[in-house]
Design a protein around this nucleic acid. Structure first.
Length: 115
DNA sequence: AGCCTGACAAGGT
DNA sequence: AACCTTGCCAGGC
């Protein structure tokens, strides 16, 4: 049974859950995360959640643009940290873009507990 | 209500 | 592939 999503709080929770569901060594787009959270078309809501929640355990660095780009401005603190953290997980990052595959479909199972 | 702001997305050039 | 324009949605004022 999917979460409520009728109020901002539950929406944020759903998004956080979707983000945490992305496996190490893989990445996912903002819109992708939104969809998996049950919020299709709300990519920008994901952005807002990420801006607010600075949770240390949140794998925020695995979230990138749909075209594989890192969303932070080149040279910014976030840009450098994200690149570094991704590479630390074995993700290939070239010129601010992630080369390789995006998160597997199995992520959905992890979120909704289908397995 | 109206306007501005975002770590976006999609489509066209 | 790079770049620009348009569409979107929620928040904060």
């Amino acid at each position: 049974m999917p979460p409520d999503l009728s109020n901002p709080e539950s929406r944020a929770q759903a998004i956080l859950k979707a983000i945490r569901a992305v496996p190490a060594g893989q990445v996912a787009g903002y819109g992708e995360v939104a969809r998996r959270a049950g919020l299709p078309g709300r990519a920008r809501l994901v952005v807002q959640v990420l801006r607010k929640h600075g949770a240390p355990d949140l794998p925020w660095f695995r979230i990138i643009c749909s075209d594989g780009r890192i969303a932070f401005p080149e040279g910014s603190k976030g840009y450098r940290e994200q690149s570094q953290r991704l590479r630390a997980e074995g993700v290939r990052v070239v010129k601010g873009k992630v080369i390789g595959q995006k998160a597997a479909a199995s992520v959905d199972e992890q979120i909704w507990g289908l397995g």
